[in-house]
Each structure stands twice: as C-alpha cells, then as structure tokens.
Amino acid sequence: MEVNIKDVVVPGDVAVEIMKSSEKERVILGPGLRRDCDRVLVTKAGVLKRRKPAIFYVDSYQKRYVPNRGENVVGIVTQKAGDIYRVDIGAGELASLSYLAFEGATKKNRPDIVVGDVIFAKLLVASKGMEPELICVDSHGKKGKLGVLSPDGMLFDCSLSLARKLLHPSCQLLTLLAKEQAYEIAIGMNGKIWMKARSVHETIAACNAILAAENTPPAEMPALCSSIARNLLRIS
C-alpha cells in the first residue's frame, strides 16, 4: 500500500512521498526504511516521520535492541576473558570491550573493572555479522561522559522508544525532575537506564517517574513530577 508522512505504516508499504520529494537533494533513510531499486519500502511497523531537510524514518515501538555504530549504551560486565570484557547490552550477542579502551589504560595499568559492574559505553563496531564492540574513550583518548557507573545506583530496563523519548531534545521530563530532586542518570539507546539520586527512596521515585513517562503526554509531565515529589514527602 502506498503511504505518506505521518501515516501508520506496516512492513511492505511503499513510501511514495520520499521518491517524489527527492529529485535533486540527498535523502537520508533512517531505521525502518530500505531502498529497493527506485522505490522506498517500509520494514518496521510504526509511524513514518520526516525531519528537515530530508531525513525519513519509522518511529516504532520496540524492545529488542539492535546495535548501531556510534550509539551510547548502558551494559553489565558479565565476563572477563583474557584482554577483553564481555558486556551484556541487551542485544542478540554479548558485546566486547577491550581493557585498553579506557582513559589512561596501558597493558600494565589495567582499568579497575570487575564482573557485575555497570558501564556507559559507545558502540565502535556494530554490524550484522560481527559481535558489537564497545569503547569507553572518545577519539582524543578522553573518557568524557563514558565509563563505569557507580555501584550505588539502580539499573532498570525500558522500551527503546521510551529511551528515545527521554533523549529527544524537546523532552522536558529530565529538567522537570531536576526541579524536584538531585539525581544523575545514564540513558542507553539499548533501553537500559541507570539512575542514582540522594537516597534509595528518591532513586526509586525517579525511576517510577521515568517509567510512567512512557504513556504521558508532554503537557502532563509537570503534574507527574510534582505528584512523585508529593509522594516522596509523605514517605519521609
């Protein structure tokens, strides 16, 4: 069936508008779209979206993470095998993380990571046939925001679309939550979220707020945050 922008689409649909709009300019096909000769086919169920100038993608609900190069993910170290760590990032396969991929790490000076640690890392390699590879430094060898997350936080899973919703520049939830309490958070594109606030109560409350945000429209988010804060006051 032929579909247009903002339509609900299913795999196999033909996105006609993309071919029409793109006589001269380069078109970027995001997740959920693929090219077949000079047609563009939909491969995921969701809503077909467009971002200026010519970026098209399917906004879909998904829980299984498929690694993509350059994405930031939260993972759990599950194994130490020779000179690499195996990290569970929720993909079909465990990701590998070299012990040299940390700031200031050398062959003699290994990073202090044990099995069970939670890390925030960037995907360096992610292709269909190979195991994903993580890295905890940027191209300048600086760690930046990546690295081990402290063990007194809490890790929980959510859908990939919620992770995307939180990371969207127009999402106000994180700043609204910051007005109620101090916290730090690491949101992975793989739908794993690590959260730490001042106390266990606060951490759990903030986690609940984030999970509740999945089905909350942006307009109701201030109300959500204040109700969480009110509940916290009642407990303490």
């Binding site: 096909l29 693929r34 971002r51 993608y57 190069r69 969207h168 730090e184 606030a197």
Partner: peptide, 28 residues
C-alpha cells in the same frame, strides 16, 4: 539500477537528533 541519492542511516541518534544520555543535576 543503483543511484547515490539515498543514504542509509541505521541509527535513531542522527535521525532524531538525540542527546547523549548522561546527565546530572544539582551537584550529584
């Protein structure tokens, strides 16, 4: 029949202009 009009970008990060996901507030 290939043309170089289309660029395949498998990640949402670029498509939606997402932030990098590690934030801290109020001195945490």
């Amino acid at each position: 029949k290939g043309s170089d009009k289309f660029i395949i970008e498998p990640s949402f990060v670029f498509c939606e202009g997402l932030l990098d996901g590690r934030v801290s507030f109020r001195g945490m």
